[in-house]
Simulated assay, not measured.
Amino acid sequence: MPVILAIESSCDETSAAICADGVMLSNVIANQTIHEAYGGVVPELASRVHQQNIVPAVQQALLNAKVNKNDIDAVAFTRGPGLLGSLLVGVSFAKAFALAKNLPLIEVNHMQAHVLAHFIGDNKPRFPFLCLTVSGGHTQIVLVKDYFDMEVIGQTLDDAAGEAMDKTSKILGLPYPGGPLIDKYARLGNADAYKFPEPQIPGLDFSFSGLKTSILYFIRDNTARNPDFVQENLNDICASVEKRIATILLNKLEKAALEYNIQDIALAGGVSANTGLRLGLQALCAKRGWNAFIPKMEYCTDNAAMIAIAGYHKYLKGDFIGQDVAPLARMPF
C-alpha cells in the first residue's frame, strides 16, 4: 500500500496531499491573498509566499492524514507547466524531502494531473473519454486513452477561457480574482440580455481574443452613453458573458465527442468550478445521453490531490525520476 506525499506549487496555491493506495487522506491548500492588490498573480511574490507556506502545508497534510513522515513511500511533485519561480519551490522541497528520506521521486505534468483528478473517489470515467480542461492559462480538449496516454485534439490558439473571464472582470472593475465574482453575479442575471459573438474557428480549436475585444468595446460604448451602465446591469453582463464562454467551450466539446464517438465526457481545471459551465455540461450530456464527470470543487482548482493520484499511478508503473530533475515552465503534454 504505497503512501504518496504530493506537492503542487505551479502558480499561487501551495498545496500538499497524502494518498495511500490511491485513496486521498488529506489535501491542504494554502491560498495567496497578496496578489489581490495587484489585480493578478505577481510571479516574484508568489515564489516568496510559496517558501513561507510549503513546510506548514506539508506538516498539516501529514497531521490531517494521521501519517508519519517515515511512512511515506514516494514524493510526487508538479514539474510543470507553471511559473518557474513557484515551481522551483515545490521541486526543491520534494527533492530535499526525498533525498533526506531516501525515497523515489515522481514528476507530474500539471495538466495531466487535472485530467486524472477524475480518478479520485468512486465515480470514474471509462477509457477512452474526453476531458475539457479549462483554466486561466490553458484551454484544451483531451482524448484520454489511458492514465498517461493522452492526446490534445483541440486547444486555444491565443487566450485561455479563464483569462477571458479574468480580463472581463477587470473591464467591469471587479477585484481579483474575478472569475468567482462573475459566477456569483451571473447567477442573479439574465444570460440572454446581451449577445456576444462566437468565434468561427475551424476544427476543434478555440479563440478568445476576439471575444475579449468585443466585450471591451461593448462596455466602452455603453458606458459612454450611460456612465452607470455597468453598475446598473452588472448581473446581466456577467450572465451573458458566462453563457457565451460556456457555449464556445461546449459547442466544440460536443463536436469532438461526436467526431470521436465518445460518451464519457469530463470537465477539469480551475474554470470547471464555474456554475454555468458545470450546468451546461450536464445539460449537454443529458440531451445526448452521455455521461458527465466533474470533480469535486476542491479538486478543480490547483491542488496536490490531483498530483497525488497521478503520482500513485506512476508509482505502480515504477516511473521515477532522479535528483537532477529541474522545473519546466513549459512542459509538453
Rank of each mutant, 00 (worst) to 15 (best):
P2V: 03
I4L: 04
I4V: 06
L5Q: 11
S9H: 09
S10Y: 00
C11M: 06
C11T: 15
D21A: 12
S26F: 10
N31R: 12
Q32M: 06
E36R: 15
V41N: 02
A46L: 08
S47I: 08
R48N: 14
H50W: 13
N68Q: 13
D71Q: 11
I72V: 13
V75A: 04
L83C: 05
G85T: 00
S86F: 06
L87C: 13
V89D: 08
V91G: 04
A94W: 04
A98G: 02
N102D: 15
N102V: 12
Q112V: 00
Q112L: 08
H118G: 11
F119W: 13
I120S: 02
G121L: 09
P128K: 06
G136I: 02
E151V: 08
V152M: 10
G154L: 03
G173S: 07
P202T: 09
R220Q: 15
P227S: 11
C238E: 12
A239Y: 14
L249S: 03
K252I: 03
K252D: 05
K252P: 01
Q263I: 00
I265F: 14
L267Y: 05
S272W: 14
N274H: 07
N274A: 07
R278F: 02
L279Y: 11
G280P: 11
R288F: 06
A304W: 11
A304V: 09
M306E: 09
I309L: 11
A310N: 06
G322L: 01
M331N: 09
